[in-house]
């Protein structure tokens, strides 16, 4: 069992659930991205990879009971570089729960959104408007 005050390594993945309505098509980068609003909370809930591994859980396990949500990952090193601290705050239903704490300006949230990598992307649950933009971009690219 990993103690609550154990250090968080720079390369550790921090996972966060994303609701399908928070995922947008970015025409500039021609990819789907979590909206910057996903990262607005000054005490943003995340799930720590080392605890998941310690419990022999896959990252996808934090989506149990949430069939529409997708999952993104950031590294601890990235968020620390954005003047954030990572806290281990286990809750009864999830020992991997933690928080990324600190002020998150709009510019910083944008950088979070750009850095986040999809671990699970449930395209079938996405907003049809965003899917239509994605498909239109694919069609224009193939012409």
């Amino acid at each position: 069992m990993i103690p609550d005050d154990a250090p968080v390594s720079e390369d550790m993945s921090l996972y966060r659930r994303v609701h399908p309505k928070e995922i947008v098509w970015n025409e500039n980068d021609r990819c789907l991205r979590p909206g910057s609003g996903v990262f607005k909370d000054p005490e943003m809930s995340i799930h720590l990879d080392d605890v998941l591994k310690d419990e022999e859980r896959e990252p996808e396990s934090v989506l149990e009971g949430k069939p529409q949500h997708s999952l993104v990952a950031l590294t601890a090193g990235f968020v620390k570089g954005e003047e954030q601290t990572v806290r281990r705050t286990p809750i009864p239903e999830d020992a991997s729960h933690g928080e990324v704490c600190g002020n998150k300006s709009q510019g910083r949230r944008k950088r979070f959104a750009r850095a986040a990598q999809f671990v699970v992307l449930r395209e079938d649950a996405l907003n049809p408007d965003e899917l239509a933009k994605m498909r239109a971009a694919a069609d224009s690219g193939s012409e």
Binding site: E22, G37, K40, D129
Partner: peptide
């Protein structure tokens, strides 16, 4: 072009 519209947790 149509915008994207997202909810915020607050």
């Amino acid at each position: 072009a149509p915008p994207s519209i997202t909810p915020l947790a607050d």
